[in-house]
């Protein structure tokens, strides 16, 4: 009988564990929001987070965007050769980069680079009692470690997305004009004419949402890590997995919100 019930017990345990994590995360998120509104504010930690999340992510964002834009131009050129390629390629590269690929790829790159780094750093601090030390030094760890990173990510990832969009479009432009023989002026005109304000707005809003998710997941898993090296490893892995899935889910929701009507 016990053997028959074991699979159901396992499902039950995992469901309860998942619900428990969702509850803990909801409380963590609410506490973060509440601390954002109350002093003290740690300006130096905020500026450090801006530098780490924004400036240091620029190379990886730039490389990802330029290759994606170039590949996108080649794909569209190949797939749309029967139509008016001079207008279709720049339009689809622009809309593809700005609406979807730019924000999603930047979000995923930030999740890989920043979320993992935040989770590993905070988890190590927890394992080595640095989080407890912060508390004994009258410093709230959530306010000192989480809030500056969360705000910095919300502000700086949209900028990264904007830069990624521009570099991605430039990648498409470079491939189209250098390799496919497009007229540069026509390419730019077709890009600018086709893009709408809503496209750019959606891109930046997605960037803010993805940045918030990436930072929050890193902080949450770091603060709730288990003991030892294994705990740090699991926190890091869990944070990146959760951030990536949530970013893709949020992308779907935001796309529905902006463009489904």
């Amino acid at each position: 009988m016990n053997a028959l019930l074991a699979p159901f017990a396992l499902i039950g345990r995992q469901t309860l564990a998942l619900l428990s994590m969702v509850g803990r995360f909801a409380i963590f998120f609410a506490q973060t929001l509440s601390h954002m509104l109350r002093p003290p504010f740690y300006g130096r930690e905020f500026l450090t987070a801006i530098f780490n999340i924004g400036w240091l992510s620029l190379p990886v964002v730039g490389m990802t965007a330029i290759f994606t834009g170039g590949a996108l131009a080649l794909q569209i050129y190949d797939g749309s050769s029967r139509f008016s390629v001079e207008s279709v390629v720049p339009q689809i590269v622009a809309i593809g980069m700005v609406r979807e690929l730019g924000p999603v790829l930047v979000g995923l790159m930030v999740a890989a680079r920043v979320t993992s780094s935040i989770a590993a750093e905070i988890a190590t601090m927890k394992v080595t009692e640095q989080i407890d030390a912060l508390t004994t030094l009258s410093t709230d760890p959530l306010k000192y470690l989480v809030v500056p990173r969360f705000i910095a990510a919300i502000l700086v990832v949209p900028v990264l997305v904007g830069i990624g969009d521009i570099i991605g479009i430039y990648g498409g432009f470079a491939v189209a004009t250098e390799q496919l023989g497009f007229n540069p002026a026509t390419y730019i005109r077709n890009t600018v004419d086709f893009l709408q304000f809503n496209d750019i707005l959606s891109s930046l809003v997605k960037g803010a949402a993805f940045g918030g998710i990436a930072a929050l997941m890193g902080c949450y898993f770091g603060m709730h890590s288990g003991r030892g090296a294994q705990g740090v490893g699991q926190a890091t892995k869990g944070s990146v997995q959760a951030a990536a899935v949530l970013i893709l889910a949020a992308n779907f929701l935001l796309t529905s919100l902006f463009f489904a009507t």
Binding site: M125, T128, E129, Q130, D132, A133
Partner: peptide, 8 residues
């Protein structure tokens, strides 16, 4: 703290 818990 036991391990010092210094902020590295």
């Amino acid at each position: 703290f036991q391990g010092g818990a210094l902020f590295d």
